[in-house]
Computed example of a mutant assay.
Amino acid sequence: MKNYTGKTVWIIGASSGIGHALAQELHNRGATLILSARDDAALSRLNGILDGRHKVIAFDVTDQDKFSEAFKAVGTIDSVIYLAATYTPGKIADIKAADVEKTMSINLEGALTLLRHVIPHYRAQGFGQIALCGSVAGYRGLPGGQPYSATKAAIISIAESLRAEVADDNIDVRLISPGFVRTPMTDKNDFAMPMIIDPPAAARAIADGLVGRRFEIHFPKKFTFLMKLLRILPYPFYFRLMRGIKR
């Protein structure tokens, strides 16, 4: 996909944060959008901002039947971007089981449900793009956010393996790895977030990246390259560093 003109893009997780900003960015670049999230009213308001010319399909990604119904209503698409996510900060022993289950269901199982639907669809139509949202929090285990970090590490692994698995099917797999972006999720953090950016900046980075050639779209670059260095630190140095910053 070289540009968005005449292309149909399905954004799952469009009601707020990065997804909301990305919808506006892709609208401005000429894409036809399918806007999905649980909040139908928020999606309808967003569509109103975007001249009301896009399709709204509200559903809960944790509901298998509703996901199937939503997919049937989508039709032909050129790209799907999975941004649905949730996050509960805190030490692992203090996090409620229900919050862990919710994190796993939305961040990971929802993405896998999407893949089970969209891969056969893309193979049948002969083309398509899949963008999964990981996080630099998935590069290595970070104190205070283990369930979230674990799901994002899994998304990174899935995107990497899927890229190889569908390489011969004309399916373009991309990985989105944001640093800190000012959203309702990061508002939950009680610590300083270095190099935090606003959603429109994240949306521009994603929009540029999806029509570029690189597998991973990571931003802001100054921060994500530092995190990539952290990823390759030998364990003794890494654990010593983590002891110094744990909350």
Score class of each variant (00 low, 15 high):
K2H: 14
K2I: 06
G6Y: 07
A21C: 09
L22N: 05
A23C: 13
L26T: 01
N28W: 01
N28M: 12
G30M: 08
R38P: 11
D40Q: 12
A42N: 05
L43S: 03
S44G: 01
L46R: 01
L46W: 02
L46K: 03
N47F: 03
V56A: 06
D60H: 08
V61N: 04
F67D: 02
A70V: 01
A73G: 11
T76F: 15
T76E: 15
I77T: 05
D78V: 09
I81T: 13
I81R: 00
Y82L: 15
L83I: 10
A85M: 11
A85V: 05
A85H: 05
Y87V: 06
T88P: 02
T88C: 09
A93P: 01
D94S: 15
D94C: 07
K96Q: 13
V100H: 06
V100F: 12
G110I: 02
A111E: 00
L114I: 08
P120C: 14
Q125H: 12
V136I: 13
R140K: 15
G144P: 03
G145K: 03
Q146E: 10
Q146S: 15
S149R: 06
A154R: 03
S157L: 10
I158K: 05
E160H: 12
L162M: 05
L162D: 09
L162N: 01
R163T: 14
A167I: 14
P178S: 08
F180Q: 05
F180N: 14
P184S: 05
D190S: 07
F191P: 02
M193C: 07
P194M: 12
M195C: 09
A202I: 00
A205W: 00
A205T: 08
L210A: 08
V211I: 15
G212M: 02
G212E: 04
F215Q: 12
I217P: 09
H218M: 05
P220M: 09
K222Q: 09
L226Q: 12
K228D: 14
L229K: 07
R231W: 12
R231L: 14
P234L: 08
P236M: 08
F237W: 10
F239Q: 13
F239L: 10
R240T: 11
R240W: 04
I245N: 04
